[in-house]
């Protein structure tokens, strides 16, 4: 392996993703969905099935070193976009090209077996992220130091609090330097001191010329971790640019809605 990193990057061109709704009674479902003010756009496909258009014509380019905040209301397509970036959903239309290893941190619970110990879970999660047992063993000290869970790592995870769980999974997911890190905002579950530590670790990744994409509702979190922003609205990119610029625009509309209401 070459010592200097390949420049990781991610390009999306005209990506559209839609979910067919198969459940019975789709008519009533259609009604109930239509009354949602935000969220994915509803349409009918060629077979007259109801589909939720979760992403529409999304094109973007993310270069190494970018720390991108995904902002937007609930159901605007932030998580779907993260999943497309992670390769979980192959887009129906359009192309996604990524270079670099991806570490998605979309769910704390992934691969966590409540009945086995913290150490066992670390091994399991390491395997999911594509590490070898030797690599995992090598990282174990670093992980247990970061989590500060001490002897708790020896007992079943079902006894952990959600904050402890977050520290554990965060430590594992960030213990091998991914080139691209995708995160949903669950990272917020933790005390202030943990957030500070987490920030140090993330700063480390970005220093290694990687990409961070973080979906969050909190302007404060975005300011802590990000320098750029993508504003998602009803499955489309409404605006993209520097973080402050977009946050300002976003705050503007939020105030607007409040005024109208």
């Amino acid at each position: 392996m070459n010592t200097d990193k390949i420049q990781s990057e991610m390009t999306m061109e005209n990506v559209s993703v839609s979910f067919p709704i198969y459940h019975g009674g789709s008519r009533s479902l259609k009604k109930s969905l239509l009354f949602r003010s935000s969220g994915g756009h509803l349409a009918a496909d060629a077979n007259h099935r109801i589909v939720v258009e979760a992403l529409r014509n999304v094109s973007t380019h993310i270069a190494a070193g970018d720390r991108v905040a995904l902002i937007g209301s609930n159901g605007a397509g932030k998580t779907t976009l993260l999943r497309v970036m992670a390769g979980i959903y192959e887009p129906v239309v359009g192309t996604v090209r990524t270079r670099g290893t991806i570490s998605p941190m979309l769910d704390i619970g992934l691969g966590i077996d409540p009945d086995i110990s913290g150490y066992e879970n670390v091994r399991m999660r390491g395997l999911i992220l594509g590490m070898t047992p030797d690599e995992i063993a090598g990282k174990m000290q670093d992980i247990s130091d970061f989590t500060e869970l001490g002897e708790y790592l020896d007992i079943p995870v079902r006894t952990y609090s959600s904050g402890m769980m977050t520290r554990l999974t965060f430590a594992v997911a960030t213990s091998f330097a991914p080139e691209i890190l995708l995160m949903d905002e669950w990272i917020m579950a933790g005390d202030d001191r943990f957030i500070t530590k987490a920030r140090h670790r993330i700063d480390n990744f970005v220093a290694k010329a990687s990409i961070l994409v973080l979906a969050s509702h909190s302007a404060e979190t975005c300011r802590q971790f990000c320098n750029k922003a993508l504003w998602m609205d009803r499955g489309m990119i409404k605006a993209a640019g520097s973080l402050e610029e977009i946050l300002e625009m976003y705050a503007e509309t939020q105030r607007g809605t409040v005024d109208v209401a």
Partner: peptide
């Protein structure tokens, strides 16, 4: 489901 929706394997 919890695996498939969270990580590409």
């Amino acid at each position: 489901e919890s695996y498939i929706k969270q990580v590409r394997l």
